[in-house]
Amino acid sequence: MMTDKKPILRVKNITKSFGDVTILNSVSIELAKGDIKILIGPSGGGKSTFLQCINCLVMPDSGEIELDNERIQFTRKQDIYRLRQEVGMIFQDFNLFDHLTALGNITVPLRKVKKMSKKEAEQRARLELEQVGLSDKESLYPAQLSGGQKQRVAIARALAMDPKILLLDEPTSALDPTLIGEVINVIKGLAVKGMTMIMATHQISLIHNLADEILFMEDGRIVEQGPPDALLAAGNKSKSQGFCDLLNELSEVEG
């Protein structure tokens, strides 16, 4: 399915400062359908802010976002609500709605944002829960779920909205090592189905197996980018290579 190479998302020259501190300095990215781009780099490099700028959870100071060739007007609320519906987001700390069951977490956006009927929404929600292997947990509240289960519900919730693109902000960082696997498997499953994704992660297996392209962010800029074979080739002295070596060493120490 690599024939269709028209970009569905174009993000150009996003800049963002908080006070005097420049967090993002003219960052751009382009995605075609099915692309998986992975952001790596040190903490504070701007990965999270960049992802949040892409669906305007953080409003960029300047720059352009085009979704399906339509320019998003940052000043038009309607544009922004539409953008967010079509660009799903997975957070490091899940952000499930604490007062709703697993099922309720998925149906509430379907009903309130997509205006589906209760029955329709529940059908869809059950389908998505099944996809992430949590059919038997639909009536449990977030406080009753493990971290891995919470993140899978969060993924199901995002997918139920039929997003064109999924942004994942360190989806496994808040999980303890025994729970990371189940979330990685779900994400790999999405990749197999051709989901378009931008993911910030330090999970070496995701970087190696999924990335079409690695973007190394540092000090609010993309300082390196390229396919993993090139960047991570043995003997390559790239920053990405150095960073991944470090991650490898760490995982050996842990494992």
Binding site: N55, L57, K77, Y81, R82, R84, Q85, G88, M89, F91, D93, F94, N95, L96, F97, D98, P109, K112, V113, A154, R157, A158, M161
Partner: peptide
């Protein structure tokens, strides 16, 4: 604030 962010990210007003 995550509750607010989570809802905003799904397109809630």
């Amino acid at each position: 604030s995550g509750q607010y962010l989570g809802a905003q990210a799904l397109g809630f007003t």
